[in-house]
Write a protein that binds this DNA or RNA. Structure first.
Lengths: 207, 207
DNA sequence: GTCTATAACCGGATAGAC
DNA sequence: GTCTATCCGGTTATAGAC
C-alpha cells in the first residue's frame, strides 16, 4: 500500500527544489528548506551531509528535466516544421509551470560552469538528427539554409528569455500589469512559431 | 591636473561592480570587494554605510547602461530596418565586452523586482516611436504586421540569451570549445539581423 | 530517524587609534 | 581618510538524547 505522505528524503528534495529555485544556492538557507519540508534542520544533514551535496542533488534533477525534453522533441519529430512546433510549444508550456527555473539554472551554471560537465554525457543532444531535419528541409526546397546551432539558439532564446526577463518586460513594456504579461505569454507560442517559420520559408505559401 | 590614481570612492565602485557582477549580491563578499579595490574592509562602510547601499549604487549604474542604449537606438533610428540593424549590432557589441552583465541584471531583478521601479521613470522606453516605425514599415508595404512587444522581445532574446546561456551552448553544442563559441558570437550579429528581416519582409527581394 | 542544544565558523558592521 | 581590532548576529554543521 502506498503511503499518503511521501518519505522524508523526498520531502526534503521537494522543499530544497522550491527554495533553491527561488533563492539560488547563495541565497537559500538550510533553515528555510527544513521549515518548507516540515522537519528539523539537523535532519537535512542526516540525509545529505552538506548544503552543497543537497544542492548538487536537486540541480541534477531540475536540469535533466529541461534537457530530456529537448532530446525527446528532437528524436520524436519527423520534419523541421514538426520540430519547431513541438519545441516551442513544449518549452513554453514547461516553463510556464515553473517560471523561475530558467533563471535558476542559468545563474548557477554561470556561477559554476563545471556543473554542466556530468550532465552532458547523461543527456547529450542528438545533433546529427537535428541537422538532418534541417538538411531535409533545405533539399526539399522548403526552407532556407541555416546554421543549426544558430537556429536552435534562436528557438531557445525566444522561448526562454521572456520568462527570465519578466520584470523588464512587465516594467518597461506592459506598465507593470500582471494580466497583460499573462496575455503576452499566452500569445507567445503562436507568435514564436509563426515568426520562425516566416523567417525559414522562402515562399510563405509553403508554410 | 588630473590624478593618475582615481579617488577611493571610484575605486570602490569599480571593484564592487566587478565582484557583484561575477558573484551576485548574495555570493559577493565585502572582503573580496575591499581586496579588489586594494583597501580595507572598514573603508567600504565608511563610504557606503552597508552592503545593500553599495549594491544599490552599482546596480543603478550597470542597469542604466543597458536601458539608455535601448532608448538611444530607438530615438536615433529613422526606420524599422535601421532600428533592427542598430539594436542588434549595439547590444551584441555592448554585451560582448561585459558578458556576465545580463545574467547579473536578470538574476537580481528576479530576486527583487522592486529594483526596477525607480529605473522605469529614469529610463523609460519611447514605445510610441518604436510602434510608429513598425506601422510605417507596414503601411509602406515593406513588412508584415507584428505586435511591437513581441518583436522587441524577440530581438532582445536573440541578442542577450546567447551570452546568458554560454555554458549550455558551449557544453551541449560546441564540445566545450571556447574558440568555437567565440566564432559563434562573431557570426551572431549578421545571423540575427538576417533572421529577423527574413521573418518580417513578405518579399525577400525588398530587404 | 528525529529531535534539542550547541559548537564552530563566517561575514557584515562598528569602535577607536592614527 | 584609512587602518587594526573586535563585536555580534546569523548559518552551517555536529553531538548526543530519545
Amino acid at each position: 500500500m502506498v503511503s499518503v505522505t511521501e518519505n522524508t528524503e523526498q520531502k526534503i528534495i521537494d522543499a530544497a527544489c522550491k527554495v533553491f529555485i527561488l533563492k539560488g544556492m547563495d541565497g537559500a538557507r538550510m533553515q528555510e528548506i527544513a521549515d518548507e519540508a516540515g522537519i528539523n534542520k539537523a535532519l537535512l544533514h542526516y540525509y545529505f551531509r552538506s548544503k552543497n551535496k543537497l544542492f548538487d542533488r536537486v540541480f541534477v534533477e531540475i536540469f535533466s528535466g529541461i534537457t530530456t525534453l529537448l532530446s525527446d522533441v528532437v528524436s520524436s519529430s519527423a520534419d523541421i516544421v514538426e520540430l519547431i512546433d513541438n519545441m516551442v510549444h513544449n518549452y513554453i508550456h514547461l516553463i510556464s509551470e515553473r517560471p523561475f527555473v530558467p533563471d535558476f539554472v542559468l545563474h548557477e551554471l554561470n556561477r559554476n560552469p563545471q556543473l554542466i560537465v556530468e550532465q552532458i554525457k547523461l543527456n547529450g543532444i542528438d545533433f546529427s538528427k537535428f541537422q538532418q531535419l534541417i538538411i531535409n528541409g533545405v533539399t526539399k526546397n522548403k526552407i532556407r539554409p541555416i546554421n543549426p546551432v544558430h537556429l536552435i539558439v534562436n528557438i531557445l532564446s525566444m522561448c526562454i528569455f521572456p520568462f527570465v526577463a519578466k520584470p523588464i518586460i512587465m516594467g518597461f513594456m506592459l506598465n507593470g500589469d500582471e494580466a497583460k504579461y499573462q496575455h503576452f505569454i499566452d500569445e507567445r507560442t503562436e507568435h514564436v512559431t509563426t515568426f520562425i517559420k516566416n523567417s525559414l520559408f522562402i515562399n510563405p505559401a509553403e508554410k
